[in-house]
Design a protein around this nucleic acid. Structure first.
Lengths: 126, 126
DNA sequence: GTTGACCTTTACGTTAACGTCAAGTAAGCT
DNA sequence: AGCTTACTTGACGTTAACGTAAAGGTCAAC
C-alpha cells in the first residue's frame, strides 16, 4: 500500500498558519500523538485531520478539551454511548448560542445603523 | 420630572446574574462611571443600559474594550465619524464570522450524526 | 568542520476577565 | 452599644492558550 502522507511540524504550521509551539502545545494537552523519527515528530494523515478538527473546534468557540472529546469520538475505540450523547448535547447548545448571537448581532447592527444616521444628520447642519 | 430609576450594585448584580466584583471591574476599565452617595455607588437608568450593552457585547464575543467603544457611540459626545466607521466595520466582520461559524457547526453536527449512526449500528450486533 | 536550517526540551512570561480573600466603613435594627 | 448586612478599596490568585527565550541536538551542504 502507498504509505499515507507524512508531515513535519513546520509543514503543518505553515499549512494551517499557526506556530510550531501551538502544535506542540496541543500534543502536551493530549490532542495529538505524532510518531517520531529519531527525536523529531512525524505527522500522519490522521494527525493532519485531527489538527484540522481541533482548529475548527476552536473557530466554533470550543475549548481544547472539548475539541479533544470531539476528536476521540472519531476514534474507533470510543464506544461510549453516554459520552457521545453528552457531546452531541454540548454541540446542540453551542448551536443555539450561535443562533442567539446572530439575532443579537442583527439587533446591534440596526441600532448602530441608526446611530450612524444620527451622526450623518448632525454633520450635515453646521 | 420623575427621577429616573436608581440601582445599587447588588441589585444590578442580581438582575444580570453577575457578581459585584464584575461590575466594579467594568468601572475600573472605564466602561461605567456611577454616581456616589457617600462612598457607595448609585447606578442610573443610563448605567443600567450601558451594563446591558456590555453584556450583550460579551455574548457576541466582543472584548470589553470593544464593548466600551460601542457604548461610547451611543453617547452624544462621540462625533467621531472615523471611529464610527471603524466600529461598524468590526461589527460587520464579527457578523461574517458568526455566519461562517454556523456553517461550520452545521457541518460538524451532520458529521457527528454519522458517528452516532455508526455507534448505534455497532451496538446493535453483539 | 563549520555553517545554517530545522528540530528538540524546559521553563518562565503574557493577556483577559474576573475570583478571592482581607480589612475596614456606614447604615439600620434591637 | 452591639450586631448584621451591604458596601468599600486594595491586592494577590486563577485559567486558557499560547508566546518567548534559552540551550542544545542533527544533518545536509559547502
Amino acid at each position: 500500500m502507498p504509505k499515507s502522507k507524512q508531515y513535519t511540524i513546520s509543514e503543518l504550521a505553515a499549512e494551517f498558519d499557526i506556530t510550531t509551539r501551538t502544535i506542540r502545545f496541543y500534543e502536551e494537552k493530549g490532542l495529538l500523538a505524532p510518531a517520531r523519527k529519531g527525536t523529531s515528530r512525524v505527522y500522519s494523515g490522521a494527525d493532519h485531520t485531527k489538527l484540522k478538527l481541533i482548529l475548527r473546534g476552536k473557530r466554533l468557540g470550543f475549548s481544547l478539551e472539548e475539541s479533544g472529546e470531539i476528536i476521540r469520538l472519531y476514534d474507533p475505540a470510543h464506544g461510549n454511548k453516554a459520552q457521545l450523547k453528552k457531546l452531541m448535547k454540548a454541540i446542540q447548545v453551542r448551536r443555539e448560542q450561535l443562533e442567539d448571537q446572530l439575532e443579537d448581532l442583527q439587533l446591534m447592527m440596526s441600532e448602530l445603523d441608526q446611530v450612524e444616521q444620527r451622526a450623518a444628520e448632525t454633520l450635515k447642519k453646521p
